[in-house]
Amino acid sequence: MSGNTDVLMGYFDSLLTTLEEDPRKTIVSDLLAGAAAQVPDDDYTPVATDTIALGMRVIPLKPPAKVNGGAINRITALQLLTVVKTIPPSRLKLHILSCCAGVLDV
């Protein structure tokens, strides 16, 4: 498939699938939860990000709880928001946005 066709297929898939029906959403959500759980509890080190089947990188949303964990969580979520702003509309984008919204408690 050409890159053009790939982009269009993603567009059609997103328009023609509702969230409830999308199995990929569950996969991403599980991966995000898993990645968050794996963050070690000591000093903050950028956790190795996994490249998953969707070609997206999972960035843990939950750095260590030490040194004002809540603030760091929010900063990470805000950083993620600036990254996600740059990717085209898709289910994954929507999902990451809702994860961030959860962390930021908005």
Partner: peptide, 9 residues
């Protein structure tokens, strides 16, 4: 509607 899924239906 951009970013909202299912809007084609």
């Amino acid at each position: 509607v951009s970013g909202q899924d299912g809007m084609g239906l």
